[in-house]
Every structure is written in structure tokens, then in C-alpha cells.
Simulated assay, not measured.
Amino acid sequence: MRDNGSSTGISLSLPVMMLCLLIGISACSTKGSAPVYNRAVSPSQQGVATASNNKPVNPSAHRYKSSRTYYLVQPGDTLYAIAWRHYLEHEHLAAWNGIKAPSYSIYPGQRLRLKPPEVRKKRQRQPLDTTPVKKVVKKPQSTTPVVRPVTKSPPKPTVAKSVPLKKSVATNQKKRVKLAWRWPTKGRVVQTFSSSDQNRKGVRIGGEIGQPIKAAEAGRVVYAGGGLVGYGNLVIIKHDKNYLSAYGYNRKLLVKEGDNLAKGDIVAHMGSPHSGGQPVLHFEIRKQGKPINPLPLLPRK
């Protein structure tokens, strides 16, 4: 009986297995395939992917370039102040606008160009050659040889080599002279320079109200006033063709435009950026119109 039961179970399971196999084959042979869904990329993800492929943008690449093309002169403006405000060299600004040195005179309402004018290349037309063409007539060659007397060429005169004159000692010394900066006032540096932050184009030196501010190098005062926004009472000194220095947030100015200063001369008394704020000096050095870090130029304390 056990054997019969086992054979019966096997015989019953075979049809079931065949039925399952047929169902599976029919499902696989059905036309079409499983649905495929394309998941669209969101705009935010697409932006991230694009940004990862592009090179990083340097935020300070065009930081010290003026975005304006023209500037309208206001009452109280000077050429140096306008050049300082737009990170330009005053000599370039004067040349672009036909302003002559050394006065650099400007007037209110004058429109100044802040960028060099575009130079358009003109096509040069080649002039037509109108000279008449001459006909060359060949002469009959003579059969008799021509005997010419042999003459010796005269000896070439000897030219003494010119010895370059030595430059004067004063000229050589003038080229060797370098600016030797000094600290404009006593105190601790409370804010350092940053090339990536427009609000930190110089350093701030803490101190006390009324403390003397001195010229960091010899030069000529080219600006003294409070017309530049963000600097308070400001003094700008021109030291040579390349370098300018500025002293801001002063309570009182002791110099005027055109004054010639020696290194260490007192130019102002220390003030503060805001009423009741911490007394500081904003000290800035610019080379060819662009702010640079003044700390490497100053002596170590």
C-alpha cells in the first residue's frame, strides 16, 4: 500500500509540474518586454553635474577691474581720487582722456573714459604703379676684347671703435634706490589684507584716538579729504611711478594736496571708522593702481 501511495503521489505531481512549465513558457513568449522607466534628472541635479564638469571660477580674477566705461566728474573730485576709486593708474587715466601732467586738471561735469579706447586697424591700399615701362634695346656685342687697366683699391680707413660713455654716478644711484617702508603708526594689526575680499584691501592697525599717523615713505600728497566713500578722512601719497600709499579713518588731517613729505612726517591723527568705534588706521599700498599686501614690505616688529 505504501508503494501505491508513493506512485500515486508521483503521478499526481507530474501533471502539476508540466502545467507550471507551460505557463512559464507562455509568459516568456509573450510579445513585449518589461516596462522601462526613464527617470528624468531634476534641474538642481543637472546643475550640479554641469558645475562639476566645469572649471572653478576664480572670484578675484576681475575683482580690481572697473565695470564702468565712463565716469562723470563730481565737485571735489581729483584725477587721483577717481583713479583710486576705480583701481586705475592715474597716468593711464590721464592718457585715455588727453589730460596733461603735472596739473591733471579736471572740471565738474567732465566725462572721463575709464577704459582704453579701441584702436581700429585701417586697411592700407597699395598705390598703383603708374611708371612707364622702358623698352630694353640690346646693343651689338663687339668682337674685340677690351683691356682695362688694373687699379689697386685704396686701403680702407681704420675707424676707431667708439667706447660707450659711463653713466653718471647719480643716475646709477637713482636706479638703485628702493623704497624702504616704515610702520605708519604704533599698534597691533587687527585686520589683515585679503585679495579675495574687497573690504580688506589693506590692513587695519589699532591704537588710540589722536595718535600720530606718519608717512610710511617719502613722497607727495596727491589727495587729502573725505570724498572717497568708505575711507573717512583719507590721505594718499605718491612715492614714485609705481607706488601709492593711503591712510584712512583719520580724525584730523595735517597735510594738503601738493605737500612734499619726508619719511616719518606726521600726516594726520588717528580716528575711527564709526563714531564710538575702535580707533584704527586703514593703511593701504597700491602698485600700479592695484592693492597689494603691505605686510611683506614693512619691517618686522
Score class of each variant (00 low, 15 high):
Thr69Asp: 15
Pro15Trp: 06
Lys115Cys: 01
Arg148Glu: 09
Ala40Trp: 02
Pro296Glu: 08
Val16Met: 12
Thr143Ala: 07
Lys121Ser: 14
Ile237Met: 04
Arg68His: 05
Ala95His: 09
Lys100Tyr: 02
Glu217Arg: 05
Ala215Asp: 15
Arg176Gln: 15
Lys65Gly: 00
Ala40Asp: 14
Lys174Ile: 06
Pro157Asp: 04
Leu93Gln: 03
Cys28Val: 14
Val229Ala: 12
Arg2Ser: 12
Gly264Pro: 06
Gln191Ser: 15
Val222Met: 01
Ser52Val: 11
Ile10Trp: 05
Val36Thr: 13
Pro279Gln: 07
Pro140His: 06
Lys161Tyr: 03
Ala215Leu: 05
Asn242Met: 11
Leu114Cys: 04
Lys174Ala: 15
Arg204Ser: 15
Tyr64Met: 14
Leu298Thr: 02
Leu112Pro: 02
Tyr107Met: 01
Gln191Met: 12
Val147Trp: 00
Lys166Tyr: 02
Pro273Val: 02
Asn199His: 13
His92Tyr: 08
Ala83Tyr: 05
Arg123Tyr: 03
Tyr243Arg: 05
Leu14Pro: 00
Gly98Met: 00
Gly109Glu: 11
Glu257Cys: 03
Ile82Phe: 01
Asn242Gly: 03
Leu128Lys: 10
Tyr70Glu: 12
Gly225Leu: 04
Phe283Thr: 08
Pro127Ser: 02
Gly210Met: 06
Thr185Gln: 10
Thr8Val: 10
Glu118Asn: 08
Gln45Asp: 12
Asp129Val: 08
Ala94Phe: 09
Met17Gly: 15
Gly230Gln: 10
His274Asn: 12
Ser105Pro: 00
Met18Glu: 14
Gly9Gln: 10
Lys121His: 06
Tyr243Gly: 13
Lys161Ile: 06
Arg111Tyr: 01
Trp84Ser: 13
Gly5Phe: 04
Val159Met: 06
Asn250Arg: 03
Leu72Arg: 13
Val203Lys: 02
Val159Cys: 00
Ala95Met: 06
Lys301Ser: 13
Val137Ala: 09
Ile236Ser: 05
Asn4Pro: 00
Gly187Trp: 02
Pro35Asn: 11
Pro35Arg: 11
Pro149Trp: 00
